[in-house]
Structures are given as structure tokens and as C-alpha cells.
Design a protein around this nucleic acid. Structure first.
Length: 622
DNA sequence: CTAGGGTTAG
């Protein structure tokens, strides 16, 4: 029997060098050597099998056995064997060995059994609590979102003069994740500089990420620039830091710097770069990156595939996004979220809804994020009832408490459908204080349905919460404009002036040959300015009859003129970003698309507008 | 005991 179980695992095709039967009476050292090798090579289930066999033989496990077995048990997510092993440890009398204690603490932390971990720690006599024990428990607390417990333990460690090492820092610092911890994190950074712990690149990288997570991307960049030595992780931390903060152009700049220094990107780098391409709508750069991904053999990485789906969707190539989605055998929640969001933002609410239901069928449990996507998809496609039923199912079926983000989606959903009083009732029913976006959604709905009375109410509320958000003033002003209320427009202008608010100049951009060409109103800085204005004149002549206001060169028009100038073939879809599609600009694009017989996809702050041969299928006008 | 990653409305 003993022999058979070992045969079984050697047949599984692992480690030829361990493929030998240990005779009865083999010393514990030999077992330990084999176990250590298996564990270090990640062959955890084989290690546990070997351990069971060891227990049946005459060799007794000892302090050199347990750390590896505990690690294997934790890696396999098997808490029960982990607890059993704890019993074995107590029986064998090894429970006072520091490395065994450390492995036990770490094992319990991996299963979120933090109280068990704490008990093990507390049982260690104070004189015997070494750095490693503290490190294990601190990192356990931090990784399980109990940063303050970790911090208290760290203070205790300092108070008792237990020496710090680099691992202590690496375990604690990832817990500094929100701006309020920034100052504390900075003082810890100073401390490690004094102890010369920062000579360790891992420690330096860890602080770099801390600055990113605490929202201080400038300090992170400063540190990055001052680091005498960098490795790939340093670059990745900075690139994903920019990417997560929405600083997409900085990501592309840094990626270029990296290439010029011959630092070779890996999957993590490319995830940050692809998602930035998505946010810029930079499809051409995105395609290049996809080629790099293929060449480097990263094509199967699920993180990369998910960001590629999102990129193609945001760049308007839904077919490609769907193809990648379909090609994935293991679709996780993020995969579904990316594709549902993609269809939703292009106004294909029916497809988004279908995908959402398929996701449920596939046994994926939805989270708050995917509900935001599903609700907004319904909202953009006029699927009001479906959206409401999703909203109600959140709590009833999935036990998810709707957050204010979901409430703002529902207000948007009802508001767009013209059900303003119901939207108002939803706001009244909120269990939390309605925030800016909620009132903002109501204000947006009032604009569509020209309800001045409710708009004024929503405006008062939203401006109390976000007094400097210029968008809401513009929105109200536009409502007054559309309803012909000149006094109202003036009132808003006075209010803005009194508060010292000025609208930043709008800009639009078009990606051409892998470069972003950015225009502001009246821009004359582009190298092809003369040609662009010539083209613009031509277009404005074409559209003259349809355009009522003056034809000063707005950023939108400049970007469109440049797009037409620089792309040749008729089949190309022109994608122009950051246009404000309203009023005059809308008419302009429509007219131009008819005259030049080209398809346009225009993206503004929140959605896509499709223009083709003079007709528009933009999401706003369902 | 140990640094970097994908999805989120208006």
C-alpha cells in the first residue's frame, strides 16, 4: 500500500530525480530533502502525498519538515490538512522552532484565519519572537485588509527593539493604500532611508507603489527619476501607476523611454500600456502592442486579453473585441465586464443584456462593477424595465448592496426615459446621502426633457456637494439656453464668475500614424496648420447652410479637418476623441460625413456617436 | 516572512 501510493505520484510525471522508492528505515533527512525539493519546485500536492507516506513510515517529521509541508498546504488552499499539520507539530514538540511558527502563522493567514495566526504568535515566548514571526503576521494582516492591526504590530516591534529587515517593509508598506496614510508612509520611507534598507531595490519599488496608491503620482515620479538603479518592476510600477490614474499619455511616453533604453517589457508592462491605449482610443498603437504581445508569446495571458477586449471596444472595433472574448476558454468576471461594458457604451444594450444573462448562466457571480456596466447599457438603449429588474436583483438575488454609483445609474435610466418623478423618488429612497453624481444624473435628465423646475432643484443640490465642478454650471446654462431663458444663462455666468470658475479650453484629438494630434480652439501650432485650415474652409463651405453660429475653428472642427486630410482610403473609419457632441458640432459632423461619404465614430467624455452618410446613431438619441 | 497587472456611469 505504501509502495503503491508513491508509485501513483511518480507516475504523474514529475521530478525524475525523486522517482525512487525510499526503503523503510530511511532517515528523516532524506525525506526532508525530497520534500523541500518538491515544495520549492511548486509540486505541492506531491509534497503532501510524500508527507503522508512519511507519516506511515518509521521516519518522524521534524522542524525541517513542517515549514515545507505548511507551505504546500497553504498553496493548495487546503485549510483542513493545515490544521491537522498544526496538531502534528504540537505532538512532535516542534512548536517552539521559529521557522515552524512562522510557517504556521503564514499558513493561517493564507486562509484568512487571522485569529488562529494571532494565537500562534501570542504563544511564542516574547524573548523568542524574532523578526520573521513579526513579518509573517504583519504581512498577513496587511494582505487581509487589516492594515491597522499590522501597523500596531509594527509599532510593537519597534518598541521592543526587534530589528527590522527588508521583508518587514515589504509586508507592511502595501497597506498604505489611501491618501490619508501618505504622511505616515513618508515617515516610514525616511526611516528606511536611515537604516539603508532602501538599498534593496524591492524596498524602493515598494515605496514607489505606495506613492502611487496614495494618490501622489508626482512624488512617485520624483522618486522614479531619482532612483539610481531601476529594474523592470520599477518601470512597471510607474507605468501602471500612470495607467491606473488615467494618465494615458504619460504611460505611452514612459513606454517609449523604456524602449529607447532597451528595457524589455513583460506582460505586466503591456497590460498598463494596452489599457492606456484604450483610454486614449489609440487603436493604431494598440495594434502595434498586440503584435508585440504575439511576438513575445504573451497571447494567452488572461490579464492582457481582458485589457485588449476593453481596448478594441473603446476604439470602436466591437467585432475584434468580441472575437477575443469568444476565443477565451476561461472567461472570468473581468472578461465579461469588459465585453458587456463595450457593447453597452456603443448603444448595443440588447447585446449587453444578452451577455449579462449568459454570464449568469455560466455560473459567474456578478459584482458591483458589472452591474454598473449593465445598468448603463440599459440606460443607453432605453431598456428601462430590464435595467430596473437588474437593479432590484442586486440585493434580492445576489446580496449586493447598491452603492451610490448604482443609484446614479438608475436615476439616469429613469431620467432618460422621461420618468423624472420616479427618478426623484429613487433619490429620496436612498439609504445613504445622495452624492454629486446622483444629482448630476437627474440634472442631465432634466436637460434631455427640458424640465427647468427640477433642474434648478438638482443643480442646487449638486453644487452644494461639488461647488467647483464646472460641468454642472455648463449643463444648467445649456438648459436655460435651450428653453430660451436669457436671464437664467446670465445668472449662471454671474455665479461662475463670483466663484472664480473658468471653463478650461476644450481640446480634441485624432490619432494618426501612432501619434496623438491634439487641437484646442483656434489652434495654429500644428505643423500642417495651413493645410488644416484650408480643409476646414472647404468643409465649412459644404456645411454652411446647416450651421447657424459662427464658424470659428473649434478644436472639434480642427481635429476633423486633420483627420480627413491625413487619412486616404474611403473604407477607413475615422475615430475622433474628446469632441463635445452637442448642438453645432453635431450638425457639422453629420453634414461633413454626408458630403465626404465617410464613416465617423466620435467619442466624447462618455459615449460614442456613429455618423455615416449624414445619419447619426449616437447613443444619446435613442 | 518578500516589490509591479485586467473591468466601472455621468
Amino acid at each position: 500500500m505504501k509502495r503503491r501510493s508513491f508509485q501513483l505520484c511518480s507516475n504523474a510525471g514529475y521530478l525524475p530525480q525523486t522517482n525512487k522508492t525510499l526503503a523503510a528505515g530511511t532517515t528523516g533527512d532524506k525525506w526532508n530533502t525530497l520534500l523541500r525539493n518538491l515544495s520549492k519546485q511548486g509540486q505541492y500536492s506531491q509534497a503532501l502525498t510524500l508527507y503522508r507516506q512519511m507519516l506511515r513510515s518509521s521516519a518522524a517529521p521534524n522542524a525541517f519538515t513542517f515549514p515545507f509541508i505548511l507551505k504546500s498546504s497553504a498553496a493548495l488552499s487546503l485549510p483542513l490538512p493545515g490544521a491537522q499539520i498544526h496538531c502534528h507539530i504540537i505532538k512532535s514538540g516542534c512548536h517552539l522552532e521559529p521557522f515552524v511558527q512562522t510557517a504556521l502563522i503564514s499558513m493561517y493567514c493564507k486562509f484568512s484565519l487571522l485569529e488562529n495566526a494571532r494565537n500562534v504568535f501570542d504563544e511564542i515566548p516574547e524573548s523568542n519572537r524574532q523578526t520573521v514571526c513579526y513579518n509573517a503576521l504583519i504581512s498577513g494582516f496587511v494582505q487581509r485588509s487589516r492594515f491597522l492591526d499590522g501597523l500596531i504590530l509594527f509599532c510593537e516591534m519597534r518598541a521592543k527593539n526587534v530589528p527590522l529587515n527588508a521583508v518587514t517593509i515589504l509586508g507592511l508598506v502595501p497597506g498604505f493604500t489611501i491618501p490619508v496614510y501618505l504622511v505616515l508612509g513618508m515617515s516610514l520611507h525616511c526611516l528606511t532611508l536611515k537604516c539603508s534598507l532602501n538599498a534593496d531595490l524591492a524596498v524602493a519599488n515598494c515605496f514607489l507603489s505606495m506613492y502611487v496608491h496614495c494618490g501622489s503620482i508626482e512624488l512617485a515620479r520624483k522618486m522614479f527619476d531619482e532612483m539610481p538603479e531601476k529594474n523592470l518592476i520599477t518601470w512597471n510600477a510607474m507605468i501602471s501607476g500612470y495607467s491606473q490614474n488615467g494618465l494615458a499619455t504619460q504611460v505611452l511616453d514612459l513606454y517609449r523611454d523604456m524602449q529607447s533604453l532597451n528595457v524589455c517589457p513583460d506582460e505586466v508592462t503591456l497590460v498598463g500600456v494596452v489599457s492606456s491605449c484604450a483610454n486614449l482610443g489609440a487603436r493604431k498603437i494598440g495594434r502595434e502592442i498586440e503584435e508585440t504581445i504575439r511576438r513575445r508569446g504573451f497571447g494567452l495571458n488572461p490579464f492582457l486579453k481582458n485589457s485588449l477586449i476593453s481596448m478594441y471596444a473603446k476604439c470602436g472595433d466591437l467585432a475584434k473585441a468580441k472575437a477575443i472574448f469568444d476565443s477565451m476558454p476561461d472567461k472570468n468576471l473581468v472578461t465579461w465586464t469588459a465585453i458587456i461594458g463595450g457593447f453597452g457604451m456603443h448603444g448595443h444594450g440588447d447585446a449587453a443584456v444578452e451577455l449579462f444573462d449568459k454570464m449568469i448562466e455560466a455560473g459567474i457571480r456578478p459584482d458591483k462593477t458589472v452591474f454598473v456596466c449593465a445598468l448603463s447599457a440599459c440606460s443607453h438603449s432605453g431598456l428601462t424595465e430590464k435595467g430596473l429588474s437588474y437593479f432590484h436583483s442586486m440585493e434580492k438575488i445576489y446580496n449586493l448592496k447598491p452603492s451610490s454609483e448604482h443609484y446614479s445609474c438608475v436615476v439616469d435610466l429613469l431620467g432618460r426615459a422621461g420618468r423624472l418623478s420616479e427618478a426623484e423618488k429613487v433619490i429620496e429612497s436612498m439609504p445613504m446621502e445622495p452624492d454629486g453624481p446622483v444629482w448630476g444624473a437627474l440634472l442631465g435628465a432634466c436637460k434631455i426633457h427640458k424640465n427647468v423646475r427640477l433642474a434648478e432643484l438638482a443643480f442646487d443640490k449638486v453644487i452644494e456637494l461639488e461647488p467647483t465642478n464646472i460641468g454642472y454650471y455648463v449643463l444648467l446654462s445649456n438648459i436655460y439656453t435651450e428653453t430660451g431663458d436669457v436671464d437664467g444663462v446670465l445668472k449662471v455666468r454671474v455665479m461662475m464668475r463670483e466663484r472664480g470658475l473658468r471653463k478650461d479650453p476644450g481640446y480634441s484629438y485624432f490619432e494618426y500614424n501612432g501619434t496623438i494630434h491634439l487641437f484646442v480652439a483656434g489652434d495654429k501650432s500644428h505643423s500642417r496648420t495651413r493645410e488644416i485650415y484650408a480643409m476646414l474652409e472647404k468643409l465649412e463651405n459644404l456645411a454652411r447652410d446647416q450651421i447657424t453660429s459662427n464658424v470659428a475653428a473649434h478644436s472639434e472642427r480642427l481635429a476633423i479637418a486633420f483627420a480627413l486630410l491625413s487619412t486616404g482610403s474611403k473604407g477607413d473609419i475615422l475615430i475622433i476623441k474628446n469632441l463635445r457632441i452637442c448642438g453645432d458640432c453635431h450638425v457639422f459632423v453629420k453634414t461633413v460625413s454626408k458630403f465626404v461619404d465617410r464613416r465617423f465614430v466620435v467619442r466624447d467624455a462618455t459615449r460614442f456617436h456613429h455618423f455615416s452618410g449624414g445619419s447619426c446613431s449616437c447613443n444619446d438619441y435613442w
